Simulated assay, not measured.
Amino acid sequence: MRIAVFGAGGYTGKLVLAELNRRDIDTVLVGRSTERLTEAASRAGLGTVPASVRQAAAEDHTVLVHAFRDCSAVINCAGPFVLSGGAVVRAALAAGCHYVDTSGEQRHLDRTFTAFGGPAEKAGVTVVPGTNDDGLPSDLLAHLVAERVGPVRELVIGLDVDSGDAMPSRGTIRSGLENIDTFTTGGLGYEEGRWHTDIAARSTALTFPGGAGPIPVAKFPLPAVVTVPRHVKARRVEGVANARLVAALAGLTPAVINAVPEGPPADSRRKARWMITVEALGEDGSHARGVIHGTDMQGTTALIAVESAHRLVADGAAAGVLAPSQAYVPADFLRFLGRYGVQWSVDGPGTAVGG
């Protein structure tokens, strides 16, 4: 098994390299700067074998395909994905590599499903976008919650984050700025078979476990709004987040990029906490709820991305562009995350489960 990391010289890319090294997986580093890639390989303990460091830009299709050619899968860590993600998917398909990425950008996910479903099937390749700290866990959890109520009338996915002093990485901020319109409008909602920005969220407050009571929430462009309706029969799916988080992201400016380091240090990351709730109302009035939470959002993203790519190579999945719950067994993947401190539970009709 050999896995390529595109954008390996960036903050998230380096965390992914460290996880690949921890698991002793053969790794190829791909990106614009040989110098940055070599430095990243050294920091991750991968050494500096010339064949494993390959210079290629997203816009140079031929060179990028050549860089991926002898790899089993590609992990794309280079945002903003709305600018270059499609080019990396296209190169992975041409090279015959499975593809995952760490994007949380709704527009990128939506474009990937629309543009590459047929080509990926034809190439015999599996593409799973959005394998990050909120996209994959919320998709898997939503699938398990929806199973409890059968046909779903409404499914609400909520996010709360306590980042403490762990500022987002520069790459995350750049992606946020490139997608600022989705934060100011709330992005896509899903209703009666269509995704559209004009679908407003109905939820204005949610109660997160451990909190003192309901907190204000606002419509938010969660990746799961794009992926969940592809495997859950639901009339309506909406994504919301703590209103304070929504306001903070909507207020991003370019000046912030120069005011933060490349990414938060490990001790700050470990203090940061994230929580996702999923509530489903069935057509028959039944109700189910799921909760998943953990720490270290960036580290969790690296763990999820590597495991996602590894499973595609080791276990296989249907060819095409898939949501996480279509590519992986939801409860099994969540139990894997449970070994690394991620806790989850599903309550509703039937027996409660979790890990």
Score class of each variant (00 low, 15 high):
G176E: 03
T184R: 15
G186N: 05
F208G: 08
R194Q: 11
E178M: 14
P168R: 00
G164M: 04
I173A: 03
D181E: 15
Y190M: 06
T204S: 14
I173F: 02
S175E: 09
P209D: 07
T207A: 13
S175D: 13
S175V: 01
S203Y: 03
A166C: 08
R170Q: 15
A166L: 01
T182W: 08
T185R: 11
T184V: 14
F208L: 08
W195P: 01
G189T: 07
S169N: 05
S203N: 08
T172C: 01
F208P: 08
A201R: 10
D181W: 05
L206Y: 08
T207M: 09
F208T: 07
M167N: 06
G193W: 09
T182A: 14
F208D: 07
T204M: 07
G187L: 05
T207Y: 11
L188N: 11
I180K: 10
R170G: 01
T197R: 14
R194L: 12
T182N: 11
R202T: 15
A205M: 07
S203P: 03
P209F: 05
A166W: 01
A205F: 09
L206F: 10
S175Q: 05
T184D: 12
D165N: 12
L188R: 13
P209Y: 05
T207Q: 12
A205L: 04
D165V: 14
G164P: 07
T197I: 12
D165H: 06
G193Y: 06
T172K: 00
I180W: 06
A166D: 06
S169H: 05
E191P: 03
G186Q: 01
G186E: 02
L188Y: 15
G210W: 08
G189Q: 04
G186C: 06
A166Q: 11
S163Y: 00
T207W: 06
G189W: 04
M167L: 09
G171Y: 03
A200R: 13
I173D: 02
G176K: 06
S163L: 00
E191H: 07
G176C: 00
T185Y: 08
I173Y: 03
G171W: 03
N179A: 15
I180S: 11
T204N: 09
G189D: 01
T204V: 13
L206D: 06
T172N: 11
R170H: 01
I199W: 08
Y190K: 00
R170P: 03
A205H: 15
A201Q: 12
L188P: 03
Y190A: 09
G176V: 04
R174G: 00
T182S: 13
R194P: 05
R202Q: 10
F183E: 08
G193V: 07
L188F: 13
E178N: 13
M167S: 14
I180H: 14
H196F: 06
I173V: 15
G164K: 06
E191W: 03
G187Q: 04
S163A: 14
S169G: 12
S169L: 00
T197G: 03
G171L: 06
P168H: 00
A200D: 11
D181V: 10
A166V: 01
A201P: 09
R194A: 15
I173P: 04
S175I: 01
T184F: 00
A201C: 10
W195M: 04
I173E: 00
A205I: 02
R174D: 08
L177E: 12
R202A: 10
W195V: 01
W195Y: 02
P168F: 00
L188T: 03
L206E: 10
A205V: 10
D165P: 11
